[in-house]
Amino acid sequence: MRLDLGAIAKAGTSKANQTGGWRNFKPIFHQKKCNSCDLCRIYCPEGCVTMIEKKKYTVDYAYCKGCGICAEECSSSDIEMVVEEK
């Protein structure tokens, strides 16, 4: 990063900004009925859902803002939104 030379920033450095703190609702991935449709990963605007193995996905709560798109779009209703306890 070079503030002195036109404020150039390095790639991907926003990862330092953990947006998980914004969350009011938290997605719980039950991993019971998952059919690996991949929609939770594809539709996540934060890019914070990852497939660990087939039928097993994880969400990075450091970034998840709790929008609930994954739960809404899950084709097997395997994701539940619960109130975030702070």
Binding site: A11, G12, T13, S14, K15, A16, N17, Q18, T19, W22, Y43, C44, P45, E46, G47, C48, T50, D60, A62, Y63, K65, G66, C67, G68, I69
Partner: peptide, 19 residues
């Protein structure tokens, strides 16, 4: 495996443009 738009951006919750 990571996306080319890194997490930690400050788009509103559920932003269609970020997606």
């Amino acid at each position: 495996c990571q996306t080319l738009l890194a997490s930690g951006h400050t788009a509103c919750t559920g932003c269609g443009e970020a997606l």
